[in-house]
């Protein structure tokens, strides 16, 4: 049987979900008998080939996040929102209660210890969205893996179910929002 091709990305997240995924430790060797990683921070491949599974960590806080998410949706047969930020915006969405201009001013103009205050405007820096959004507000999501982060066992359960051709089903003990 050919291996399932898996892509992963971290959008407006903290990479904590990826770190938790890597907590599968040596089980990654067994996993690699069944999957190969495509675009991912783990491989440093920059763009998606056609993939079977895409894991999305983080919500959407800038236009690059939206661009990457759309590439994943176009390339992956199954898209999974991983972690609190992808599912409901998470901690980055706490800025949604404040105007973006105030957030930028607090960080880059008036913040404690700021020297040479200026709001970054380099063309390489992706423009921020007015509000942070969960990923299902922009593309169709097939499955959700909650948690902050989801435990390593939950990653194994969901990927294991998909490898064996089953609908992913999280047992209650792996369902957490914190």
């Amino acid at each position: 049987m050919s291996k399932l091709r898996v892509a992963t990305t971290s959008l407006a997240g903290c990479f904590g979900c990826h770190m938790s995924f890597l907590d599968i430790d040596e089980r990654i060797i067994e996993l690699l008998d069944h999957v190969e990683f495509n675009r991912s921070p783990l491989t440093d491949i920059k763009h998606c080939d056609p993939c079977d599974i895409g894991l999305i960590e983080g919500g959407l806080c800038n236009i690059d996040n939206v661009h990457v998410l759309k590439e994943f949706r176009a390339s992956c047969k199954i898209l999974i929102a991983v972690g609190a930020c992808a599912i409901n915006g998470g901690v980055p969405a706490m800025r949604n209660h404040h105007p973006l201009s105030e957030c930028l001013a607090e960080s880059y103009l008036n913040g404690i210890g700021v020297e040479n205050p200026q709001i970054p405007d380099d063309v390489e820096v992706p423009l921020l969205l007015n509000k942070v959004h969960p990923v299902h507000e922009v593309v169709k999501i097939d499955y959700y893996l909650p948690g902050c982060p989801p435990p390593a066992d939950a990653f194994m359960k969901v990927l294991g179910d998909l490898i064996e051709g089953r609908e992913p089903l999280l047992p209650r003990t792996m369902l957490r929002y914190d």
Partner: peptide
């Protein structure tokens, strides 16, 4: 949260309000 676990809630389904 516990009721949501009991009901197997995985996502919010609807667009977030983010009320102030």
């Amino acid at each position: 949260q516990a009721v949501a676990y009991h009901l197997g809630m995985l996502d919010g389904h609807f667009p977030q309000f983010y009320p102030k």
